[in-house]
Design a protein around this nucleic acid. Structure first.
Lengths: 191, 191
DNA sequence: AGGATTTCTTAATCTAGATTAATGTGCGGC
DNA sequence: GCCGCACATTAATCTAGATTAAGAAATCCT
């Protein structure tokens, strides 16, 4: 089972398993310490990171030095800066580990069409389209929903992350401050 | 030249031209009046719309009845609700014409892998990944940039639309009110 | 375990942008 | 060509969420 979610990507190649990736020389295991940064803004993302155990996140840093969490990647997810990984452009994102994490590093050959059969390609395209849908919904959410509504949506989408991710990073993912999210939680509890 | 930008999609099949689309029975010309709605929220988007001449837009309607413009589609663009078109789910979006518009309606067979060669597929995947990158940037923008910065970014991205699209819809695309955008324009002029 | 650092909560201001409202401008239809 | 209506501007409030601040709770590290 190969899933590329990610900044951008959510590709699923149903015929590929961990063993295949390792055997084919397209991936290798690596341990990441909590807090360790494995991709820096400005670098070319030469690899994608498949989370076996643990939790990665990707984020951008604005001109004021503020972190904006783009996504979280728990077990089973693959994360990279898809733009950088695909087009060999400098990354807009950092990727680091929020927990001690075991990953498989994947190289570019994973995205090549030659190595896939037609079913895989159809599935990959569907997953990309699905990922586009998710981003579409997130854009609409950011444009039209209040912070409280976006938080409720986050809870539905990632029910297991609430107890794993510090509040301040959930707030960052939602595009609000930790104080604002704390107040929202307080209001929910009062009801 | 076949481009699927869109809510989500930006697919380019370089070997397909208008003539091919028509000859293959996968598309047919249609004229859309200004203001005419060609896709309603809740419908299945059975077709994608390739703009030959004119301007379409897609938008969502929130619970308060407010319109949120998701994207504009001038000449050369293809627009649909990719989620609905691909997965046959009810559309989140409306699509209507902002100018009298000539389109080619495309049916589902355009997205099928069988009808494409390997180069086409690679190109299609690249375009999807590119579209994901654009959405990624828009999410980051919405989270971290001020309304004025987002307006500047809009001007860079769509230099020709400023004089074609009413201010109120540009404001909607940016996620702000017409009054706020008017004030921003005033401040830019004063400098 | 215990001191240090980071995170969370709560509350008092502050501000970007929303809302409301009133006036001005442009454009399409007859 | 001018009437009518949609669109744009400007200004006065209003409000969600930011900022600041300070104390409480959790977590980390040796």
């Amino acid at each position: 089972m190969f899933e590329l979610h990610g900044f951008a990507g959510l590709i699923h190649f149903p015929t590929l398993y961990i063993q295949d990736a390792i055997r084919l020389g397209q991936g290798r295991f690596r341990h990441i310490d909590k807090g360790e940064v494995i991709l820096y803004q400005g670098e070319i993302a030469s690899r994608a990171y498949w989370v076996v155990q643990g939790l990665l996140r990707s984020y951008s840093l604005d001109s004021a030095g503020k972190i904006h969490v783009f996504m979280f990647a728990p077990e089973g997810w693959i994360v990279s800066d898809v733009q950088s990984f695909t087009f060999l452009e400098p990354s807009n994102l950092f990727i680091d580990a929020m927990e001690p994490t075991l990953i498989i590093e994947l190289n570019q050959s994973y995205l090549s069409v030659q190595s896939l059969n037609e079913g895989d390609v159809t599935h990959a395209i569907n997953k990309l389209l699905r990922r586009i849908s998710i981003l579409q919904q997130r854009v609409i959410m950011l444009m039209s929903a209040s912070a409280a509504e976006r938080y409720e949506h986050f809870l539905e989408t990632y029910p297991d992350l609430v107890n794993r991710v510090p509040l301040k990073w959930i707030a960052s993912y939602l595009g609000i401050t930790p104080e604002a999210l704390s107040t929202i939680r307080g209001r929910i509890k009062d009801k």
